[in-house]
Design a protein around this nucleic acid. Sequence first.
DNA 1: CGATTGCTTGATACCTCTCAACCCAGGTGG
DNA 2: CCACCTGGGTTGAGAGGTATCAAGCAATCG
Lengths: 235, 235
Amino acid sequence: MSAHLAISVNRSALPPHAINSKAWGKPAAAIAPIWDTDVSVTGAVTHFAQDQEIYGEGDAAHVYYKVASGVVRNCKFIDDGRRQIEAFYVAGDLFGFEAGTKYQFSTEAVCDCTLVAYRRRSADVKMQSDDRLTSQIYASVMRNLSRAQAHILLLGRRTALEKVAAFLCDWADRASGGKFVSLEMTRQDIGDYLGLTIETVSRMMSQLERQGLIELSSARQIKVNNPAALRELNS
Amino acid sequence: MSAHLAISVNRSALPPHAINSKAWGKPAAAIAPIWDTDVSVTGAVTHFAQDQEIYGEGDAAHVYYKVASGVVRNCKFIDDGRRQIEAFYVAGDLFGFEAGTKYQFSTEAVCDCTLVAYRRRSADVKMQSDDRLTSQIYASVMRNLSRAQAHILLLGRRTALEKVAAFLCDWADRASGGKFVSLEMTRQDIGDYLGLTIETVSRMMSQLERQGLIELSSARQIKVNNPAALRELNS
DNA sequence: CGATTGCTTGATACCTCTCAACCCAGGTGG
DNA sequence: CCACCTGGGTTGAGAGGTATCAAGCAATCG
């Protein structure tokens, strides 16, 4: 297996936490309420440029985040550069909860992102007195578990075509932009999420297009012509 | 992909909840405390025979369980009989939590099992007044999330040999019986957990044995000769 | 304009699946 | 006791799907 050179280069080029602390200290990082919930806790608005690391595996888990805009990938690097993306987070998603004191995965901005960062009150955030927040966090963890389980189904017993089709369905649902899906991530991201190479991802996309299920106006802009048939591949 | 005939037959032979309700009503199902925790909540002790269904996907999620002894598989069946095992639960593990009102997976006894069943107080168990229990449940959900994420890593970018090696390592840790690992599950279970066929699982086991890393005194009784080398395959 | 990056496509190699045969242990019945 | 059957496991030969290696295209950027 060859190394993901581009990724590796990005990683080594980015000092793990210089960015993070910079974002924290930035004047623009004003205290702001969460926008679309009733939680009264406030957080710091932070911006991350494309491919910036938000936190790295092993860093102290002092902070958790909510995505305001953009897409975040939660990933792990193994040995010689193989990478596995565990999940993508989009607007509204909470991430960065850990059972222990350290992050178990790295997170990076897939595209330019706006996040809201919250400090963890104590080592175990679950015991906070604010029940409404606890409830939200619990719900978020359950959602992440549910997605992880769905991801396992996808990775375990699906063909490349089924994986790509399922990915597009999932992404179409999340973006909910009707028949038009805009992919913020590269083919490499998709491949590392689905356990496929970029070539295979590309080939499956082309095959779906030849079959008339989708249309690629560009590589990142996809029109779903036949959602039913696409979903049918998930059987 | 061929259907898992044995599994399918078992499933159709078992009326989904007859067993469950029988277990509930059984005189032997006395109220008992959880043994190895400080939680004061009591549950009903229930027994399940090998391959019995504990609950099915779509059933109302009124109950959650703790494994007292034995092994449980959490799995999903797709289309023509393909099956994916999301996780195995062993003694001490809690399972059966859902964000919604229905179970999203089926669970079955891998071997004869003793479980403790607890009724969910309300639709969202997280809002219970008993904070110690809530804390335990939260910790359990986090552990399940963590394991699911590790499982994703395994399924996404690993070869068959690496998968089987990782499985054996994991199982050796959990059973913690030193160098000797006893597998309660069939090759089919292992294959459905790792996204491999039984033949490939068998071949990889044989290869590990030929390489001297393990020794198969029987198909289910494995001695780990070289834990370091085995773990090395997980790089 | 050249260089770079992301993407697509083709040819080939390799890994895992499929299909098949066989072994072995346990159970059952004559 | 043996013959037979069954279920779980192993092994082999061949097929098929995905990875690898390589080339080329389009868009972007300096």
